[in-house]
Computed example of a mutant assay.
Amino acid sequence: MAWEEPRKTGMVYRRLGNSGLHVSAIGLGGWLTYGGHVGDEKTFECMKQAYDLGVNFFDTAENYTAGKSEIAMGKAIQKYGWKRSDLVISTKINWGAVNGEILINNHGLSRKHIIEGLRASLDRLQLEYVDIVYAHRPDRLTPMEETVRAFNHVIDRGMAFYWGTSEWSADEIQEAVGIARDLKLIGPVVEQPLYNMLDRQKVEGEFQRLYPRIGLGLTTFSPIKMGLLSGKYNDAADAPPADSRFGASQDRFAEFMRSQYGGEDWRGNIAKVRQLKAVADKLGVTQSQLALAWCLKNPNVSAVITGASRPQQIVENVQALQILDQLTPEVLAEIDEITQNKVSLDPARQD
Rank of each mutant, 00 (worst) to 15 (best):
N269H: 11
E101W: 03
V38F: 07
D40I: 08
A333C: 07
S24T: 02
Y51I: 09
N317S: 03
V133R: 06
A271I: 04
R124S: 14
M73V: 06
L53C: 14
F44G: 11
R111K: 13
P212I: 06
I115T: 15
L290G: 07
E167T: 08
E62S: 07
D325A: 01
S121E: 15
E167G: 02
R245W: 10
T147P: 08
I338W: 04
K184Q: 15
D131P: 07
L118M: 15
L194A: 02
D86P: 02
V315N: 12
V301P: 10
R124K: 15
H153L: 07
F58D: 08
A160D: 08
L125Q: 13
E146V: 06
Q350E: 14
E316N: 00
E45R: 04
P241I: 13
A76F: 07
L194G: 04
V343Y: 13
D156I: 03
A303K: 07
S19L: 11
N105Q: 13
L32C: 11
E70A: 12
I93E: 01
L218T: 05
L218C: 01
D325S: 10
H113P: 07
A176T: 01
K112S: 15
V98D: 05
W31Q: 04
V203K: 01
A160R: 10
D52W: 05
L109F: 09
G205M: 05
D52H: 10
R84D: 13
P240N: 14
N196W: 02
D182N: 06
E5A: 11
G17H: 08
E146C: 05
S85W: 05
L122K: 14
E206Y: 01
